[in-house]
Amino acid sequence: MIRMRRGVVKEITSHRPGVTELLVEVEGNTQKAINYDELTGQVRPGDEVILNTTAVYKKLGTGGAHFVVGNLSHPEVDVTEIGHIMKMRYSPCQVKVLSVEEPDSPFAEAMRQASSLEGIPVIIGTLHSMIAPAAAALKKLGQGQLKVAYLMTDGAALPLPLSRLVYELKQKGLIHRTVTCGHAFGGDLEAINVYTGLLACRAVVKADVIIVAMGPGIVGSASQYGFTGVEQGEIINAVNILGGKPIAIPRISFADARERHRGLSHHSRTALGKIALTKATVTLPKLAPDKMELVLQQTEVSGISQKHDLAIIEARPALEALKEYDIKVTTMGRNVEQDPEFFLAAGAAGVYVSELV
């Protein structure tokens, strides 16, 4: 189930908090690898490391780089004493965190008293790249006055530091604080589940707007329910239970060659039409007439238009904001010019919330 190989660190190529990217010599080749510093400690050129090479070997979506499992040259890694919650539990790489809910947390009392999102808007996406246009629109149209929290679920990548996008959005002031929930870890705050993650965004971060989406990557299949994006419907339910206002980003594309993703993706039709049991506002971008007609027809056939409120938004300001803040983001390898409807759909949520707030 896991393909392990020894390698030698040849070069450190980049570093940001929590993550070191490097080149390793493994099986006679020089290849990319990723080291999570808080899991396996610091690495240096010349270190002998154990690598998980499974995804690259299988040419999977999570490939492109190996992952350091252990550093044989510096095998001992210590943890801080505070914190008792384990993520990735009962695995060889289980991670100890200080969860925002536990008694040792400085925010334990605030979390004990927290029970409501107090009506604030919660933008809910499925793919990680959706957070960029939504956050850019919030900053530009909110004139920098909105405090935005990002809640990362465990539907895809578990370590938040893997995301170059979140690092950039924080550096440029589009996201103020991050929270990781479930088995995801590495946020400014840690939470046990999506409910306490949402409450932490409001009660501790004091966010005006919350953006929720999984980390980089997604697990999918050609089956109706076999993808991790089903969580969007469940998060809508959670936001309503906690007294927030859910705004759902639909996955829309006319650049994807797969018929099931043309127009309104089958992912959105399932998550919003089947999984969500409570109402959200689904923001649709204004599109060319033929494309708009198809998407509206798909919302009708899937039951989305009967279950949720639809808001058709002029979303071009979101794309203008991406340019203004020099944020280059891709989805499935396609940029804004190659797949504009995808990014317009995500940006529409940010524009809508800016006007709402």
Rank of each mutant, 00 (worst) to 15 (best):
S305L: 08
S305D: 13
Q306N: 09
Q306G: 01
Q306T: 12
Q306A: 14
K307Y: 01
K307V: 01
K307R: 15
H308A: 13
H308R: 12
D309T: 15
D309Q: 15
D309G: 05
L310S: 08
L310D: 03
L310N: 11
L310T: 12
L310H: 04
A311S: 14
I312E: 12
I312D: 12
I313W: 05
I313C: 13
I313Y: 01
E314L: 06
E314H: 15
E314Q: 13
E314F: 06
E314W: 05
R316H: 12
R316E: 15
P317I: 08
P317T: 01
A318I: 00
A318S: 15
A318W: 02
L319R: 05
E320C: 00
E320Q: 11
E320G: 11
E320H: 10
K323H: 12
K323W: 10
K323C: 04
E324W: 00
E324K: 09
Y325I: 07
Y325E: 01
Y325M: 11
D326C: 10
I327M: 11
K328H: 15
K328Y: 11
K328V: 10
K328S: 08
K328G: 03
K328I: 04
V329H: 08
V329Q: 02
T330H: 03
T330L: 02
T330I: 03
T330E: 06
T331F: 15
M332G: 09
G333Y: 05
G333A: 08
G333S: 04
G333C: 00
G333E: 02
R334P: 03
R334H: 12
R334C: 10
R334I: 05
N335G: 14
V336A: 09
E337V: 11
E337W: 09
E337F: 09
E337Y: 07
Q338A: 14
Q338R: 10
Q338H: 06
Q338I: 08
Q338Y: 10
D339A: 13
D339C: 04
P340C: 00
E341D: 15
F342W: 09
F342V: 01
F342A: 08
F343I: 06
F343R: 08
F343D: 00
F343A: 06
F343K: 05
